[in-house]
């Protein structure tokens, strides 16, 4: 299955499971993080029940991401925003119930435990990172990576892939940063950008944000390139994906140099 087909297949399955008419009518469709889908597909590739593992893990991730959209205080003056916020709380709770229901139906209680432990770690890490000032972006990056990878790490360990976890973490973080970088270039402001501005940069400067994002992206890229440890054979697809991206970047870079040359 090609990755686009794969994403569409799982996105459809996930949205079918979390469907609720009232939430759909009032909230934006929750985002399915494709790179995590890809990673989960890699981790679970040899298991018959992989659909259930992938969907339940992604639904938990979406539940927790949804709760990140809650403002620290509600704007009481605007009833519509208030209603949206209230429904956002409930949407996250609803998705949490769905993940549990999916696994309970499949009688997979041990995987419920794995994800519950993942939520636990992730939530504690969020409380730590969201409410702390960071002197250096490197420290922030290292701590944020734990939030981004907590659930998938648990799943990888469950499927005995501890050996590749370090690589997996960097790969996930690279994908996340790439996404955040492209959103920044499209002038979109995300929760991650705000977190960086508040907890790391602290002067609300977009130039600094650009610098920090690029630095973190290059740092992560370097960590992946310098990774020399053994990897489970399943992780070859992650390596190939990364190499392909590097080739694509080089190609784009050469093209832009050529174009610049032409314009001169």
């Amino acid at each position: 299955m090609k990755s686009t087909q794969l994403f569409n297949y799982y996105k459809k399955l996930i949205h079918k499971n979390i469907k609720n008419d009232y939430l759909s009518a009032n909230l934006e469709k929750p985002v399915v993080e494709e790179y995590k889908l890809f990673a989960l597909d890699t981790i679970t590739s040899q298991h018959l029940q992989k659909d259930n593992y992938i969907v339940s893990t992604m639904v938990v991730q979406m539940a927790l991401n949804t709760h990140d959209q809650i403002f620290k205080t509600f704007p009481k003056s605007d009833n519509q925003i208030m209603k949206k916020q209230q429904l956002t709380v409930l949407a996250g709770d609803f998705y949490s119930g769905i993940y549990y229901h999916l696994l309970a139906k499949a009688k997979d209680i041990s995987f419920v435990r794995i994800l519950a432990k993942g939520i636990n770690e992730l939530t504690q890490q969020k409380a730590y990172v969201y409410y702390r000032d960071f002197e250096h972006s490197e420290t922030f990056l290292a701590e944020y990576e734990k939030i981004e990878t907590a659930l998938l790490n648990k799943v990888a360990a469950y499927f005995k892939m501890e050996q590749g976890i370090d690589y997996l973490d960097k790969w996930i973080m690279y994908k996340k940063l790439k996404l955040e970088w492209s959103k920044f270039q499209n002038s979109e402001t995300t929760f991650f950008h705000q977190l960086l501005l508040q907890n790391v940069i602290r002067d609300n400067s977009m130039i600094s944000l650009e610098d920090v994002l690029l630095t973190m992206l290059n740092q992560t890229k370097k960590s992946i390139k310098n990774y020399h440890g053994e990897l489970p054979p399943q992780f070859d697809v992650l390596k190939q994906d990364f190499q392909q991206e590097m080739r694509k970047n080089n190609f784009l870079h050469i093209n832009s140099v050529l174009e610049e040359g032409l314009s001169k």
Binding site: A63, L64, H67, I70, F71, K72, T73, F74, V89, G92, D93, S96, Y100, H101, L103, A104, K105, K107, I109, S110, V112, R113, A116, K117, I119, N120, T123, Q124, K126, A127, Y130, Y131
Partner: peptide, 29 residues
């Protein structure tokens, strides 16, 4: 609100983690 959300998610996960000590799938359903 953000701390309240994290606290709720944290307690919820603790509840499920604890409940998984019950083996009976019907109880989980």
């Amino acid at each position: 609100n953000q701390i309240a959300m994290l606290t709720g998610d944290f307690i919820f996960a603790k509840a499920l983690d604890q409940f998984t000590e019950i083996e009976e799938p019907r109880a989980h359903q």
